[in-house]
């Protein structure tokens, strides 16, 4: 099953919405930076967010899944036998 919409239709419908989300992201990161240097720059959550943003620039049709995995704990096989 796939989308009944063409890529052009999707882009036409969502261009402004995506632009707005990028601006929200930019403004949020600006806000963190403006608030001063309190060691937050070393917070691993910021590093995760940077990795997530970099992931958006990679090709593919599974970016959402890869972002989910970036923010997921690791599953350890055979955990029931421990």
């Amino acid at each position: 099953m796939s989308s009944p919409q063409t890529a052009r239709q999707i882009l036409d419908r969502h261009y402004l919405e995506i632009r707005s989300k990028i601006l929200d992201l930019a403004a949020s990161l600006d806000r963190v930076d403006r608030a001063g240097k309190d060691g937050t720059q070393d917070d691993p959550r910021l590093a995760k967010l940077r990795s997530g943003i970099e992931l958006l620039l990679t090709p593919g049709t599974d970016r959402a899944e890869r972002v989910q995995m970036l923010f997921s704990d690791t599953y350890v096989e055979n955990w029931m036998k421990k």
Binding site: F71, S72, T74, Y75, W79
Partner: peptide, 18 residues
């Protein structure tokens, strides 16, 4: 929720299949 979801869902499926 959130970061626990992938691992937890896997664990749940493991228990159900066992």
């Amino acid at each position: 929720h959130l970061q626990d979801k992938f691992k937890g869902t896997h664990m749940i499926v493991d228990m159900l299949r066992a």
